[in-house]
């Protein structure tokens, strides 16, 4: 059995996937062995499959998993709120927000920072989304090279980060460093 270049190109994908019979494979092997162009097509196609098949080719956006879990949590049975549930939640939210306001303006002062050496934040918009890692001490803008322990990062609001004692990153949050 003899095959042409065109036949090789038509079957190259099936050849790589092992989807052709032994006779055709043998004929293709013979042809490719003596044909520079078909060798280039085979090598290149195989490289395409190998490279794209590597799991490093799939990059998910920063915080994807965290946001996905939060969305699922909100929709799990038992977490879905009835109208009365929402009323309670809103009331609780107002109480919590109020208590934070009281705490900020009273003897309670600022929450303790996770690092004694860090500078507290000043003027950070509380709804700004920032990146923190579970065991880290600072919060960052997404993509900052100073993010510690990238395997355990979360995206949260800056207000929440500050309440949990995170301080602004000295590199990406310079403008929000306290005096």
């Amino acid at each position: 059995m003899v095959v042409s270049c065109e036949q090789v190109w038509r079957e190259i994908s099936n050849y790589l996937d092992g989807e052709i019979d032994a006779n055709l494979r043998s004929a293709m092997d013979d042809h490719i062995h003596g044909c520079k162009r078909c060798t280039a097509v085979l090598d290149g196609t195989r490289n395409v499959v190998e490279l794209f098949g590597d799991e490093r080719m799939v990059e998910v956006p920063l915080g994807f998993s965290h946001r996905l879990h939060r969305r699922l949590e909100e929709n799990m049975p038992g977490n879905r709120r009835t109208f009365f549930g929402w009323l309670v939640a809103v009331a609780a939210g107002i109480l919590v927000a109020g208590s934070f306001e009281v705490a900020r303006s009273s003897v309670f002062g600022r929450p303790a920072l996770r690092s004694e050496l860090a500078q507290p934040a000043r003027g950070v918009p509380p709804d700004m989304l920032v990146v923190v890692s579970t065991d880290g001490k600072t919060f960052h803008v997404p993509g900052c090279r100073f993010i510690h322990d990238k395997a355990h990062i979360h995206i949260i609001q800056a207000g929440e980060a500050m309440r949990e004692g995170y301080a602004p990153c000295v590199r990406c949050m310079k403008e929000y460093l306290g005096a």
Partner: peptide
């Protein structure tokens, strides 16, 4: 219709480590 390759540049060894490089992943993407 059959697709005919347009380029016959020689591609042999491709170290998968090249995928560590962001620009490689970007070009493939």
């Amino acid at each position: 219709g059959h697709y005919t390759p347009r380029d016959f540049a020689d591609w042999r060894e491709i170290p998968l480590e090249t995928l560590e490089r962001k620009e490689v992943r970007q070009k493939l993407g």
